[in-house]
Design a binder for these strands. Structure first.
Lengths: 233, 233
DNA sequence: CGGTGTTTTGACGTCGGTCAATATGTGTGG
DNA sequence: CCACACATATTGACCGACGTCAAAACACCG
């Protein structure tokens, strides 16, 4: 997000984090030429579940939530994607409509890369395909872990874990406040519970001294206490 | 499982269901030469979580459960894999220890294919890599769906859904009994609940006339009633 | 300053987990 | 084929976890 000016992919640092690192100079040039850069405001949608995507979105900055509406009308957040991650690759590869919606949780900067560009490289450059396979394999493992947590842990454990996740993946400021600010509802949708339950548990954590808040910001102050909650004590 | 005699992969029908379909004749020959066929008895383990796999396992017949132990000591079944599916590819691709255990739910016949054979083709044949990518993308989508179900549906809904899943994926005999017989504990571990809760809900379903049982066999007799449960009525 | 959306709190009922006791198989060796 | 040992299935009782409805306390914004 340094600036809003489209950069050449060849020099984009973000690329180091995703499968585009396996592209040749020539391929990157083609991506650079075909891509378009977009600013997405906090709360805005990048794409919605059921849409047919014409390409993928490479996240240059900001955070997005990938969610799916369930029959009861509530969103389940499946994943938070940040700098370097590529959104929509699954749908492009299997050539189906998306199964997830992507929404900005932050102000974001994303690059749209047309499907054809990706598919071409995929078919001609095994390194790129394998690199993408590696990333997908990683996502799959993470999804498996989430399934296990959802199946075996209580809501309280999952909320505690969510805070560690936020800290590990998005960091905290000098005063220990988490950099990524999610609404209580979003947190509830990550762990799969009702907003009120989520709120109640968070205030319990505050009362017990595991967390503190200031405005919308949250900080972990008793790491060990919270860790015990995750482990079921 | 027609017989226990190793077959040539070139003629193996199972291959049509997985990424090996994208292999060249030459590649298939190499797979055929390097593979070994194994019979696995019901209840036996194919590999355990944390192991380093030296290759992948292609399922020729039977069903296996892929599960992960959670901190509280209970298994969560993440997926049931059947004829045509390849076990362990994720770990082989990212070159990590497995995150899941694979256990036979049925008597099984599997072919072990050494890592090198797979990796070689992956690096040289983009079609194969892309085909594997497609399968992995499909798995990922399924995992996302599971996450949503776990987060948003009640245990009762998930159990009802599990029966539809068993019917759709493994079929039923002429009398409507599900072909794949899972223990109550396994069902509980699929949906992420206690065995007793699972049992209680199944007997409720029987009482309401949605299911009937005979010995270990279970049949869906009121499809619509059960469907209403899944949808939350 | 009122209006709108988020956070918090209360009350209440159901869902689901745990412990424990009892059936019902199921397999093994005699 | 029986008897015993052991796994699996079933049921009851109890209680804490969680979802839901509602109302109040705050925040933020034009």
């Amino acid at each position: 997000m340094e600036d809003g000016i489209p950069t050449r992919c060849e020099q984009c640092i973000v690329r180091q984090f995703n499968s585009l690192r396996a592209m040749s100079k020539e391929e990157l040039r083609r991506v650079s030429e075909s891509k378009t850069t977009k600013l997405v405001k906090k709360g805005d949608s990048i794409f919605k579940e059921g849409e047919k995507l014409k390409g993928v979105y490479c996240v240059r900055g900001g955070v997005s939530k990938l969610s799916k509406l369930s029959a009861n009308g509530k969103d389940q957040i499946v994943k938070l994607a940040t700098k370097g991650e590529v959104l929509g690759q699954r749908s492009v590869i299997v050539d189906e409509n998306t199964n997830l919606s992507a929404t900005a949780v932050d102000d974001m900067e994303v690059c749209f890369i047309p499907k054809e560009t990706i598919v071409n490289s995929l078919n001609s450059n095994p390194d790129f395909a394998v690199e993408m396979l590696r990333h997908m394999a990683h996502d799959l493992k993470e999804a498996d872990d989430v399934i296990v947590n959802m199946g075996q842990k209580t809501v309280k454990q999952r909320i505690a874990e969510a805070f560690f996740y936020l800290k590990a993946n998005f960091g905290e400021d000098k005063d220990g406040f988490l950099l990524l600010k999610l609404s209580r509802e979003d947190i509830a949708n990550v762990v799969g519970t009702a907003t009120e339950s989520c709120i109640r548990i968070i205030s319990e954590f505050k009362k017990k001294g595991y967390l503190k808040t200031s405005g919308k910001k949250v900080a972990i102050i008793d790491e060990e206490g919270l860790r015990n909650v995750v482990d079921g004590f």
